[in-house]
Design a protein around this nucleic acid. Structure first.
Lengths: 247, 247
DNA sequence: CGCCAGCTTGAACGAGGTCAACGGGAGTGG
DNA sequence: CCACTCCCGTTGACCTCGTTCAAGCTGGCG
């Protein structure tokens, strides 16, 4: 079980990213992100300290082991979070999309690497400032607790997947989850945008690329899904897909 | 990959458990549990609403799908948390010990079953009352956020284990973790108390009983550990164990 | 046009699962 | 006190699902 040498494009804080102060009032994800719980005066305060960040596909926002310097909200695009074993085996522990919060880990060092799947826009909030906000604003504190416990629940669901599901069940579960997330964002849940590579899916589902590919072929052959243009999957039989996902 | 029919001893709220109001002032886990952040007046308030619960080995505190009615602190003993697939495949998603908090999931339904491994004592706090506490006490809110994010970090670590580690690496990681937890509680980290069965370990590590047994034998043969009396494992070569754990 | 990265497919292999048997300790009942 | 049972852990033999290794295929890009 050997995997890839890690030749990721290194793009660190500031590099290649326009850093301009950003008004929250006309933010496209405001209603969906954690910022929704902030009132106008808090939002005005936040506008003073946040910065805009842009990443190209494949750029890393930070690496496992880097000191925690900021919190983020994804305003557009998609990211993957992953951990590495010394020999290069990789486990993707999550994907983030438009509106998601990044940094629900109040520790000194990042426990995972974050890399952009597509060109991605972020709202970056400096660590100390944001933590002051959290202490001052009760609604924000509660919102973060909710984000963290939601994350915990999905992580437990993923443990069930990784520990006990077959390859087909894993793929089906993944597609069902992607579809639900797409609908949350207001996207089409049946014509599914899939910004990650087969390798990324494998590293998320505890499988190899080959198995992912074969399993997708099988789902396609049995008419549950079909492949649309590059980066899109069509869900043809949602009921069957959900049945497979649950074992 | 079929597993066990689920014939667990059903012991629900109240059954077989003395329900008496409990003074926090002389609680054995007070300094270690979340209660440590409460001041004396808050503690006095809490004393008025909490109840004591006792479970025998194998008793279930609640089941996956039950409505959330209370939060708990483990005052003594050990618990396992698990999720089931319809066909009985089981994934243990965590173990709780003395001092641990249970209920960092602010949802309406429990997403997992909780079962006692040994006779266990709990401090039970009614849901609404506890949530009022959380809203009133900033330190408690922050503490819970910390508990939740710590849980999230361990869950991510476990994903790496389940997705990418070999059987031997999983067992080694598990023992290293158990040892660290024992030391946190002030127990001996080398003469390790292991209250769970081989089946439970397997269901936690995504393996079968047989593989757990074989792998333990291998670790024993290579001199890394040795088996002491029933329910105890001796760590003989911690460095080597940690080496194996990290791949 | 040619190159490279990502995806797919085939064939052989192996880590861990499945099935089966056995041994030992704890609880039970005679 | 012993006989019996049951559960748990261990071990062996065999098998399977997913991995590994290898080869081609496709589409985007210089």
């Amino acid at each position: 079980m050997k995997t890839v040498s890690q030749m990721q494009t290194e793009v660190r804080s500031g590099c290649g990213s326009a850093s301009v102060v950003n008004a929250c009032s006309d933010c496209s994800v405001r209603s969906r992100a954690i910022c929704a719980v902030l009132d106008n005066s808090e939002l005005a305060e936040l506008s003073k300290v946040n910065r805009h960040r842009s990443l190209g596909a494949g750029d890393c926002l930070f690496f496992e082991g880097d000191p925690t310097e900021a919190y983020y909200v994804v305003t557009d695009g998609a990211l993957k979070l992953y951990k590495l074993l010394p020999d290069g085996r990789r486990q993707v522990i999550g994907f983030l999309f438009k509106g998601d919060f990044l940094g629900a880990t109040f520790s000194e060092e990042h426990a995972f690497t974050v890399e952009a799947l597509t060109p991605t826009e972020l709202c970056q909030m400096p660590r100390e400032k944001f933590e002051l906000f959290v202490n001052d604003s009760q609604p924000l504190g509660r919102k973060l607790l909710q984000v963290a416990t939601n994350g915990l629940a999905s992580a437990q669901e993923q443990m069930l997947l990784l520990g006990r599901k077959t390859a087909q069940e894993r793929l089906a579960s993944f597609l069902v989850w992607m579809s639900a997330r797409a609908e949350e964002r207001g996207d089409d849940g049946d014509h599914l945008g899939v910004p990650m590579s087969r390798t990324d899916m494998g590293d998320y589902l505890g499988l190899t690329v080959e198995t992912v590919s074969r399993t997708i072929t099988k789902l396609k052959t049995s008419g549950v899904i079909s492949l649309a243009e590059r980066g899109y999957i069509e869900i043809r039989n949602r009921d069957r897909l959900e049945e497979i996902a649950e074992g």
